[in-house]
Design a protein around this nucleic acid. Sequence first.
RNA 1: GGCUCCGUAGCCAAGUGGCUAAGGCAGCGGAUUGCAAAUCCGCCACGCGUGGGUUCAACUCCCACCGGAGCCUCCA
Length: 520
Amino acid sequence: MSDTPTVYPLRVYNTLSKTKEPFETLVPGHVGMYLCGPTVYAEAHIGHMVGPVIFDTVKRYLVYCGYDVTWVVNITDVDDKLIVKSREKGISMFQLATQMTADYLSNLQSLGVDQIDRMPRATDSMGEIIQFVQELVSRGFAYESGSDVFFDVTKDPEYGRLSNRTADDQQGEGGEAASRKRSAGDFALWKSAKPGEPSWPSPWGDGRPGWHIECSAMSRGILGKTFDIHGGGLDLVFPHHENEMAQSRCCHGQPMVKYWMHNGLMRAANDSGKVGGRSDRDAGADEVSGKISRSKGAGGLASLIAKHTGERIRFFLLRSHYRSTTVFGDEPLSEAGASLETFYRLFDRYERISGSSVYTIAYCKKRSEFHAPSAPTPLQAQCIELRNSFLGKMDDDFNTGGATADLFEMARAINRWLDQEKLEETKSATAITELQSALSILRELSALLGIFMKPVPKASGSDSSAAIVSGLMELVLKLRAEARARKDFATSDAVRDGLGAIGITTQDGKQGTTWQINRT
RNA sequence: GGCUCCGUAGCCAAGUGGCUAAGGCAGCGGAUUGCAAAUCCGCCACGCGUGGGUUCAACUCCCACCGGAGCCUCCA
């Protein structure tokens, strides 16, 4: 599929070694990448979007660098919480999972996460899961107890290596299953079903898979016994990933994953604890927890996206380093939006000059396809230098936060040049070509972050009301222009201030007045 | 208690054993504008939690302390 790629000096932080390592794929030119997806028992909150946005960006970058990438995100659609929640709602577990999966997918789409290749569901993979458990039992790493099957952590000498802990410090999951385990740290591979619970037939009786086994089974099915990158939130390092790793390594006698990548967690402003974290649940009772969850951004993602746009949220997530903790709130989101305006204004400026949309400018999709002009103009030279800087930062463990600085520098360089050349007046064709080549580089780089891919929806209502608004604005601004022409500034300022008060900003330029509806 | 991670200007946030510590938001001065807005130019940490240590040299390495976060139990 892919030609032998140029190998770029990528470095990736590996949780297993706690260092940045040179990125070398198992199979030259190919990358298998698995991200732990959601348990679909409730609406997604912003915390669930961090991993997808980050790994979407990772995939974009790897593809750009010439790799052929297969990215898998699983959907956990069978789990204790799904059973509980579906009973509360009086619907089947399957119905609940279907609804919540749809919610999750639509949120991903809003944030521009469109690079996922496969989204296997646990319930579609029962055969593989049962097969995997059987292999573990027959190899002596798991045992049947009652109608449950547990993984025996004492059989794995490397257990605890990922999360840096030993099997004996494990308290393990409590509950009534604890009494059937040989050691506290053992975890369930297969859980027997109680009457009325959803179940699948197995050699150990009707039941359902434990939490960790689906990832081992499904990743093997799609990516093989060993694959390149496994990602997830930092909170999954233990027990989830530790257990997955133990199962797969013991079953296959070879490492499961080459690079373990973990993203930092999201925290809510005005409160401690991660979004959707334990404190939410401890806050407990019904109405109260709902309110807290909402104030912490759990739930209500759709309205958050409507208010701030998916692009703004995506940029907010990519503005800081993926491994750091990010404080989420309305203020930081608005600030991210304010900084994005610089680019949108530049894009509008281009449109006014060229008469065409910046989103139609072609750009390089592959790193190796970029060719610098033999005699670059000063503007082009600057953009090329910034491009090198940007890519250097991305090469270093996907430093998206650092890389954004180069985008801002590029916008400034282009604006400066536009001011000097007075392009609004000359509209010189050769200058527009030069402008396009600069913007093409900006698009090439921003596409790696998955931003500026398509026009941002205007902050307005339906199409018909938008048409009315623009008609009204045309009329109002025409009257205002007449007032200005007769130097009736009292009237023209009153119009501008009045529009400002209702959230419309106007800008007078040499070519007339432009306006837009403010986003907060 | 055990194991991790973090602490950079008013706020957000990159980064490095030794050139002037990115960028953004806000703010200030200037160019521009009828006035604004936008854009451009300039300013905005003699300092990188505190105290020690290593080093020719540390914000960057080590130790202690203070403060914050995560995991050890379902969790992106």
